[in-house]
Design a protein around this nucleic acid. Structure first.
Lengths: 351, 351
DNA sequence: ATGCCGTATGTAATCGATTACATCGTGACG
DNA sequence: CGTCACGATGTAATCGATTACATACGGCAT
């Protein structure tokens, strides 16, 4: 005599179950949930009660199939463990979830096969748009993100020759400012610790370094360019290289293409007895949280990380909703030089 | 005279398009892709050619709807910007993608409304399983993750009173080992820098601290317990508190409930002139990369971060495929004490 | 009284794939 | 020679929601 329909319910409730319980059609249930104002109060209350009683949740796959949208965007990140990207992601996440979009994070670090899987995912209609933080348009063996017919937006790393919007900072200009700061302090013997040659950010920051020297009438010295790859370890190696030089031959200042290398370098030369900033001034790039934690604190270019993410996300949302959006495609955000304890005028007078 | 069917194709190809082009039925196309061995070679080649020509990719929403699976798992992370979790995520990602599962990262940091949205997502059938790194079972206003009828697995933070598998380290035991190391060095005046009171990890590490003291016959002194909250800033505050004490009243060693606080504290007291480890030995907990970058390098408990993630992911996969899995539910992974430069025997003889 | 309009709701087509079941040959075996 | 089995493929039901269109009803104007 038990009410068997209620007692045994192994599976999740469907819209038809709600409709039956409320004594209305499925269309009415759907409308009640999507546009409550079009059903009269009495029905609405009956439906909502039935929704509560059944614990109904619309099946998202079914909805996506029908409306041909997913309300999801994919974000391609070179390495999620990199604190810089973690903060950009925060900005993206905030903006996207405020607009009721979900977020799939494609962490490209690790096995290279991942990239292809994510491309296929998007091509299979599992995302309405893609945010590229990774400096290139992703591809799978026989497909390309552009085949996916969804809007793309790039941020952080500029991708030359593409027609979608790109949200970046002006790396050339900002690097020039960083090196200009060292020059204003009186340094003329300024080294550069580079990123990987093929990386666009590296190329731009190097260009900024060169421009600053040129403007100050300082001759570029290829021997002052140390090769790195953006990792802490590369900073350590570069530090060792500096220590191996005769003290008089050492530069009095160094501009690192990112903070992690700067910190690795500082740590190494500091342990070996060099004083920072007295013996060597160091400027970094990025403004990661650790730049303010280390000893001494690091003078660096602070990128507007959250803002980069938020702006890129906003741009993508506008593309996804308006089809084609406004006229301006490339947006440059301001980055600022943050003066801290790792820079000072050179101790020995130059030359 | 142009072949209009090929020239104008604004939308993505559907399985019916492939079938038509190959001159077979949709069933055959589906079978060719899912179980190639059941169709004869000739048809298979025709179908595969048609797939290539059309650029066909199966629509995943449609498939998910039909097979009632998504091949996606949701991972709830307290804060993605925390490097500890970033590495756990790597382990999860590797294991999951090797098994062809996708991954949605639910970053709980930021607006509290997010948690609810993710719960609804799972209840709406958008994930086949959930990995909880966040120390609690997530809820939305009128739902709970347990209502979602998908397997759950917890990792990193133990959730008491739950029946799903939990992959953690033995925090009590490991904290005891860390403090035991200080005791073996000869310290008797050992402070503890805590996490937030309500956090389970904090409670367990505090318990380990107490056990170590008790076993060594050292009386616990409530004045030696400094309140923190796992942030760098809390470490700085605690450092200031130590500096405010009379030098003779200061502890000779300190155990911090995590690395970030330990590093904040070291930085503060070091800048004020205290020598680490000579004036104060410090042990941290977690083993984040920065523990090896800072000055001095930090003696700490290294958690098997990747392994925690990989093991939890493997357990979840087994639950998702076998329904109920093996008998063992709670797995403890070994964490190891990494000796570095922040600990040493006390300078002044104890007592 | 008739016809028309607007409002609330119901009916059924639709999204695109998977798959149970039906069909059609073909070869083997009694 | 008939039937049976099996292998390859086709037909159509199905997953669960959204929504265009149909219907029914009440009120209002003529």
């Amino acid at each position: 005599m038990a009410k068997r329909t209620r007692v045994t319910r192994p599976k999740a409730a469907r819209i038809a179950d709600v409709a039956q319980l409320a004594g209305v059609s499925v269309a009415t249930v759907s409308r009640t949930l999507a546009r409550p104002e079009v059903v009269i109060e009495e029905t609405r209350l009956r439906v909502l009660a039935a929704v509560r009683d059944t614990g109904y949740m619309p099946n998202i796959s079914a909805r996506n199939l029908r409306v041909r949208k997913t309300m999801v965007v994919l974000v391609a990140v070179p390495d999620i463990a990199n604190p810089f990207f973690a903060e950009v992601l925060q900005g993206i996440d905030d903006t996207l979830s405020a607009a009721d979009y979900g977020l799939i994070i494609a962490n490209l670090a690790g096995s290279p096969g991942k990239e292809a899987r994510y491309v296929d995912l998007v091509c299979a209609g599992q995302a309405d748009g893609v945010l590229l933080l990774c400096g290139h348009v992703m591809r799978s063996p026989d497909r390309d993100l552009r085949d996916a017919r969804v809007p793309l937006v790039a941020a952080c790393e500029y991708i030359p020759g593409e027609k979608f919007p790109q949200i970046t900072i002006d790396n050339v200009d900002t690097a020039r400012e960083a090196v200009g700061h060292l020059i204003k302090l009186g340094h003329t013997n300024i080294a550069y610790l580079s990123g990987p040659k093929s990386n666009i950010l590296e190329q731009q920051r190097l260009e900024g370094y060169r421009q600053a020297l040129r403007e100050a009438g300082i001759a570029a010295d290829a021997g002052l360019i140390l090769r790195g790859d953006f990792t802490f370890r590369a900073g350590v190696e570069a530090g060792r290289a500096l220590l191996a030089l005769e003290p008089v031959a050492r530069p009095t200042a160094l501009f690192a293409a990112n903070d992690e290398m700067a910190i690795g370098l500082i740590k190494t030369v500091h342990t070996a007895g060099l004083q920072i900033p007295d013996d060597l001034s160091v400027v970094g790039f990025d403004g990661i949280a650790y730049a303010d934690y280390c000893e001494p604190t690091l003078t660096t270019i602070v990128q507007p990380r959250r803002d980069l993410g938020a702006t890129a996300a906003a741009e993508l949302i506008s593309l996804m909703t308006n089809g084609r959006a406004g006229p301006r495609k490339d947006i440059k955000l301001p980055a600022t030089l943050m003066l801290r304890d790792s820079t000072r005028a050179p101790r020995r007078s130059p030359s």
